[in-house]
Nucleic acid binder design. Sequence first.
DNA 1: CGCTATTTTAAACGCACGTTTAAACTGAAT
DNA 2: ATTCAGTTTAAACGTGCGTTTAAAATAGCG
Lengths: 223, 223
Amino acid sequence: MFKYCSNWVSDKCMSTKNKILDAAEDLFAVKGFNGTSLREITSQAEVNLAAVNYHFGSKKELIKAVMSRYMNELAPNLETVLLEVCEQDKPTLTQVFSAFAEPLLSLNDFRENGTSNFLQLLGRGYTDSQGFLRWFLTTQYPNVIQYFVDAVHKAYPELSAEEMFWRLHFTMGTIVFTMSSSEALLDIAKSDFHQDVEIASLIEQVIPYIAAGVAAPVGGART
Amino acid sequence: MFKYCSNWVSDKCMSTKNKILDAAEDLFAVKGFNGTSLREITSQAEVNLAAVNYHFGSKKELIKAVMSRYMNELAPNLETVLLEVCEQDKPTLTQVFSAFAEPLLSLNDFRENGTSNFLQLLGRGYTDSQGFLRWFLTTQYPNVIQYFVDAVHKAYPELSAEEMFWRLHFTMGTIVFTMSSSEALLDIAKSDFHQDVEIASLIEQVIPYIAAGVAAPVGGART
DNA sequence: CGCTATTTTAAACGCACGTTTAAACTGAAT
DNA sequence: ATTCAGTTTAAACGTGCGTTTAAAATAGCG
């Protein structure tokens, strides 16, 4: 009775587990964690309702598993590119933020709609469930955050720790909010401007914005 | 049997209605709309469970009522200051965004913790309940949005409509996300930097960030 | 007061949720 | 063929939700 089994188990189990993860991911991204029931998930995954509790233990553990699948794929790549940026003498903020683009976009090879799904999940996790996912991410993947802070500091050393703290959270807000409502926004943009905006071009649009925001002069100077 | 009564009704009714609105506002801000039950609200308001459905008709209408109470207070003030900014020959983006500060902060005279409560509610409304509140706000208070767009356009006429659209949504994201997690962030800041950060100083911090973001050069120039 | 309209109350309704149970099934090793 | 761990299944459990009901309490007014 090896409940909550890991990845070495039989193919049949893997298939069910992954069917659940795939369905949960799609539904969580669109309707949020609280807004998605296990019955919806198991129905879309075409597995039995009890399978979630059998394989994952609880809904909360399923949420963690969905996020971990992405973070375990993404974290090493992010650490690599951020360290690369830090090797330069004087990186620019645009370089720092642009470094995120490639690892994020490569999530599309990992899963269909991987990039937008992951960013939407990130957005959900920050507002749903009273921040337990923020705790989960910051404790499970501290290196990514540390390397990022180091890179920003190297690009803009005049920024004090407090200002850095706030501006990085503003940036997180920009990304996370934009992506969690990206579906609606892309629809509006499509109908208003008759242009097909992809998630990649959205990332391109947001980089100059956050780079300029973080680069804003300190101490009340005016723009 | 005048159900769903308006404001001309007796004092007793007003009292119950307002007790519900006050309790609902506080709980919605902290736990979100989906995360707050009518039983929590009526318990905190010290009224009967059925009072919500008697006075407001449904939970959804209660949510609208909570938001309307703020927007009806805020919208005229915002329209005034934005029109004032527009009267200048060439307003700066910092002036445009700074114009929001005073009306937002005056919500603290309207209700205790009015500013942070309202901004948190705004954040909840954009991610909870699949955007029905976004529809509600944009259709009920279109002038505020229009005047704001006009002011930004006057401050930065080179910005194309598409870029304006995205940058304003990035800005919305920055504000809304920051404020919806402001409680947690202010706690972290307090323990990390041993400084007591108020909502007012948070607004001061965010204005240069978003002003610089919106002011970022167009067409892929580097910072 | 007595009548009426309004508000408050306690209780229940039906429903959907996450979770648990125990039996049925599966497939490989003995 | 039997055994048995691992997996799937149908059914149920208890809980909490938004909402409804009908009776009781309250206020306004002749």
